[in-house]
Amino acid sequence: MSTNPISRFFRWFFYRSRGDSPFKTILIHATLIASCIIAVYPALRVVTISLRPNDTLLTTDLRIIPENATLDNYKEVLFGDPEKNRQSDFFLWIWNSFSVVAVTSIISVILAAISAYAFSRFRFPGREAGLVFLLTTQMIPAGMLLLPLFIMIAKLKMINTSLGLIIAYAVTSVPLTIWTLKGYYDTIPVDLEEAALIDGASRLTVFTKIILPLSTPALAIAFLFSFMGGWSEYLVARVVLQKNEIFTWPLGIFTFAQQFTVSWGQFAAASVLIAIPVMALFLYSSKWLISGLTLGSVKG
């Protein structure tokens, strides 16, 4: 056992498994580091651009921290620019997105929590047909029903309202949530309920006192799935919402992205502000998200 720190580091770094040679280990690390750079660098570029001062926005510089880095873009995106008499819609967009997506997710989780229990525990005529139907809806592209939905929403005079978008998002979110939760309920042993039923509890008590508390993590996953599905949706929102004051953030920052030369910096700053909380939430919950993917079937 040598105490030389360098050789200890080497031993630590190359801790052997299945007899990989040091050369091979280095090769594997190099491959992974290269993949990490490919994965991270384009994302990091957005941060870089957001820090660039406006006069050097368009450069062929590849450094991560630009020269004369400034937070001006962030300030303008968040609070507008009083000198140019420009107001910021950023918080408005976030609020629009949040209110629509949160309500959609709440509705679908409530509907699904109840009906998935019936699908999981009861045998009744029409059950199989219902399940097959739910499975098929996962294969239908969301865009396919967009046209009739659009006409329906228009006839109900819900174009340019958040309610119209809630309806459109619920189309994909409800079946998916039912499917996920049904998969989870199936994993809860029936014995628990049977014991409670024998003790004289009603089905409703069993559902509210046993099943719902046991499935809180799954309900959270289903909520998160449905939330993530709608949060950065662009194409449906573009059809339903056409006024700036009702825009969700993907529509909003697309107006930045379109004026490439003018507001690339603002687009980047807005993107960073939105992406960081989402990514933090995602990385934090990724373990459960991944287990949620295998709960029901797989759906992204």
Binding site: L32, S35, C36, A39, V40, P42, A43, R45, V46, W231, S232, E233, Y234, P250, I253, F254, A257, F260, W264, F267, A268, S271, I274, A275, V278, M279, F282, L283, S286
Partner: peptide, 21 residues
């Protein structure tokens, strides 16, 4: 953690950022 970053970024943002790239 680093490798899942492209998945973690909201798809719309990634697409719009790449559009300019």
């Amino acid at each position: 953690t680093l490798l899942v970053i492209p998945w973690a970024i909201p798809g719309t943002i990634a697409a719009m950022a790449l559009r300019n790239e």
